[in-house]
Design a protein around this nucleic acid. Structure first.
Lengths: 253, 253
DNA sequence: ATCATAGTCGTCTGCTTGACGATAAACACC
DNA sequence: GGTGTTTATCGTCAAGCAGACGACTATGAT
């Protein structure tokens, strides 16, 4: 930051907002936090915050992700997944009126995480929760057990919608659906991820043939599990392949 | 812009940078401008500039596009193409050290344009030109007729590379390749677009079958042309379809 | 023992693709 | 006018993949 005439450019605030998606109970869910301050006080919003002066955008997103969920973002260039989530830049939102206080440009990021025990929000358990994206995006807003239905704050409904659309299309041609799964998972669990994200039913037999027949998508661990009931299923880990060729085909569209 | 404590957030400069692509003489080319100021004075860079205080990001990108090329960006939600270019947000680059002067966050946009007579750069004809992306991205830099070879300024090589990759993958599953063509074009011209962007040779017969068989991709205008030599070819306009299903398949990959 | 549940292996049919032969309609040149 | 060149367009054939669906397997529940 060398000295430079600050009047030569208009100052902006830059934030990162996070669309954190997971699959819970057969539904695609997003992390939402309740705003404690004005504007939109008491409304649900996406987690996010200001980018610090010497911080990269992706670092800021990873920091927010840890603060909100405890998840470590794994480097997208490394095949390691560990207990971390997938994190990528989504898009940037900079409408001059998107924040009534000042000019804010928000660089939204998309995170995909396996099902987690519970969100944490700086200790305040009631101010962060997983909510089905359908409910968050429903025009009436979001209500649970009689709670007041309110739309998301700012332009966060648009951001969430864009993030969901990105996730829906990206699991078609990449192995990203495995980011929704624990380190070891069965073909059925992976299929339920696709079904939840796309909102469709898939044929278990054709799905099994497809994913086990795509080289590099899944590697068997040798173990089996019966946690879903029924016949024990083979356990797999995500393989090295990131791009699926040919892609998974989404019905209809 | 209500009054608000300006010390509550760190100020950033926000710019838009443009990756403007076109196909000239069987090669994918990008618009490059020569920097007149420090830093990177005299080096080639992507066109761009500061976002104005009350301007949307996409408006800023469209304004820069007009200033640099005279092209009107057409609304991506409207099927009209007219004489305009396709314009979409690409990604945002915010490394704290990407500009040595100050903290700059740049929202890069991708524009796809038909072959144009010549770029204009505020009247200075020598400070803007179309250059093959291969040359701009070559590690040695860009040299033409003995001109000094220099890499692009800032992180613009990365931005250009990301833009080219986006274009390459997006013409697979969308009708965006038509954005590189004039309003009326032949199947052969469209095929040469694919060949230039992907850098491969495609079978004219299979390509013809594919694009004419995809509903909504092309609509015949009734006219024919012989501007490429050989047998006269039917003229087409871009159809309403934006997503190709099934997609065009890129050889190898 | 029987049923319900979930996983896994096959089969068949239709569609799409890639390779490539054949024909058509213009121009260039002799 | 004939001949070759160029580009466009139509057809054919085999291989591969996807969707529909039958059959069998291995567990737990009743």
């Amino acid at each position: 930051m060398s000295p430079y005439d600050p009047s030569a450019f208009p100052p902006f605030a830059v934030t990162v907002d996070l669309v954190v998606l997971t699959v819970r109970r057969h539904a695609l869910c997003a992390l939402a936090v309740r705003r404690g301050e004005s504007p939109f006080q008491g409304r649900w919003a996406l987690p996010g915050g200001f980018v610090r002066p010497d911080e990269d955008l992706s670092s800021a997103a990873a920091r927010e992700l840890i603060e909100e969920t405890g998840l470590c973002a794994h480097d997208p260039d490394s095949p390691v997944q560990a207990n971390g989530a997938h994190l990528e830049q989504l898009a940037t939102y900079g409408d001059p009126k998107r924040d009534p206080r000042m000019r804010v440009v928000s660089v939204a990021h998309l995170a995909l995480a396996p099902d987690l025990p519970a969100p944490r929000a700086g200790g305040d358990a009631n101010s962060a929760r997983w909510a089905p994206v359908d409910a968050l995006l429903a025009q009436g807003g979001y209500g649970r057990e009689g709670e007041q239905a309110t739309p998301l704050a700012f332009d966060h409904a648009q951001i969430l919608s864009d993030g969901v659309e990105r996730a829906r299309s990206k699991i078609e041609y990449s192995s990203l659906a495995t980011a929704f799964c624990p380190p070891e998972f069965t073909v059925g669990e992976l299929r339920r991820v696709y079904e939840a994200v796309w909102g469709v039913a898939l044929d278990p037999r054709n799905f099994h043939r497809k994913v086990t027949g795509t080289p590099g998508f899944l590697v068997p661990t040798g173990g089996t599990t019966t946690r879903q009931g029924g016949r024990p299923a083979q356990l797999f880990r995500a393989g090295g392949a990131t791009l699926l060729n040919p892609p998974m085909l989404r019905p209809d569209v």
